[in-house]
Design a protein around this nucleic acid. Structure first.
Lengths: 248, 248
DNA sequence: CCTGATTACTTGACTAACCAAGTTGGACAG
DNA sequence: CTGTCCAACTTGGTTAGTCAAGTAATCAGG
């Protein structure tokens, strides 16, 4: 027996990255503080600068730190798990243009219903800009009625209240026109009876049950920017989505 | 005017990475073929080996290629966009143990209903292992009935049919015991009337409406490994999930 | 024909050095 | 006191070289 280890030693850069990551996770280098310089880490780990930089680059990519040329690297902390990205149906609702698969029913001012007013944090009956269309799901051809609501003040200058077809999704349009960024979207899915106008638009019987989905698009401060309400007849096979499970 | 360019020249490694990525996207280097060796790329791009390797490493991390020491780098092709990860409610269904917030109602063999048989691709009435519990959503305290189904053959040796409480989620347990990996999960959400046993377990009126969710866990070959059916009374405020929108 | 050694080639990891670009603090002059 | 300059330090990018580990083909010997 030569005393050879049963497992290969981890690469040096991996060991350095692990050490630094543990320190960040354990609060030795708290968020907002500067990490030791490359030169210091070279001395501490007895490695070349390239090897140290490789470890640091890996941690940067993971979100543990960020570097400023000439200044140093600041600790960001343990990266928080991101919330999942929207499933397909929500993505389509936010980004689908009005040019295909859709029929614009109307666009303009309307008084906010209690539900919409609550979500937009405005008074019931206050004027909002509403934009309504019927469309068909591109995969299932199932019909749905989609209504975008926006506070009248926020809609100024965006063209949301006009009857020209939007060439981009409602969210894309808002972000571009208003130069703002949406941070997240809340989906509330529920079962309810169709309103008379909804039943007419969707060709349903009066008092038919529908699946209703309210999408509240928010900014980083969690203020509502945009609300999209989608109503559809209950699909015979339900609503289907596929999610990835394997971790590469 | 000194003729200085208005934009800084891209870093050399970035230019090499872009060039190679374009070639892969355009089919010059098709998936399954070997990329030119580092030495060849060094000559082609008139760069040092470290610079070439940096570009290749970036593409590897993006999923365009993979390297085997001594052999070369094989083109994987344009990475397909990953499907979204499961929202919270699906994650809980797959991973929550039976130790908290849950009451195991029973575990054992049962004949497959037409719906479960279709999903598992077995004959109606064939025996499956079923495991049923009631639980409460940890955020909303809303009740739900959850039933895990697995083909009897696949369940052998896993302890799924036994009455001991599982200390891990059903999927975790299956993956560990069977040393297999699940690739994705299909969620089918629908509205239906509660079966009599479901109504009893959930304390509902007969023929009450429920939101029913069928989760089909599949392997990479899209064969069903596990099915989880969840039934809940229609929540008064619906089912809510939050999705991230901002791109860092 | 099979096996082991050798050679040429490949990628993975590491070192040392250099240049570029930026930050910061101290010294000095007005 | 304020502004400018400069040195020391920082990270970003690049080059050149070495050693380690692996692949694949060829050749020689049994």
């Amino acid at each position: 027996m030569t005393g050879r280890p049963l497992e290969p030693a981890p690469a040096k850069y991996a060991h350095i990255a692990d050490s630094l990551r543990s320190r960040i996770n354990n609060g030795v280098h708290p968020p907002g503080t500067m990490l030791p310089s490359e030169a210091q880490l070279v001395r501490e780990f007895a490695a070349s600068r390239s090897t140290v930089v490789r470890a640091l680059e890996y941690l940067r990519q993971l979100g543990y730190l960020e570097g400023v040329q000439g200044k140093g690297r600041m600790v960001l902390g343990t990266p928080v798990p991101r919330r999942p990205v929207p499933p397909r149906r929500v993505h389509v609702a936010l980004h689908a243009s009005e040019l295909a698969n859709a029929t614009l029913l109307g666009a303009g001012r309307a008084p906010a219903s209690p539900r919409i007013a609550a979500v937009l944090e405005i008074a019931v009956g206050e004027l909002v800009i509403a934009r309504q269309r019927t469309m068909f799901d591109s995969e299932t051809e199932w019909p749905l009625l989609s209504t975008v609501y926006m506070p009248a003040v926020a809609a100024e200058g965006t063209g949301f209240g006009a009857s020209d077809l939007l060439r981009e999704g409602a969210l894309d349009h808002l972000e571009r026109r208003r130069r703002i960024r949406a941070a997240d979207v809340v989906e509330r899915m529920n079962l309810r009876t169709a309103l008379p106008r909804e039943a007419t638009s969707l060709g349903l019987d009066r008092n038919a049950s529908t699946l209703a989905s309210l999408l509240v698009v928010r900014n980083a401060a969690q203020q509502a920017l945009l609300v999209i309400e989608q109503v559809m007849p209950v699909p015979p096979h339900g609503i289907e989505e596929v999610f990835a499970l394997a971790h590469a």
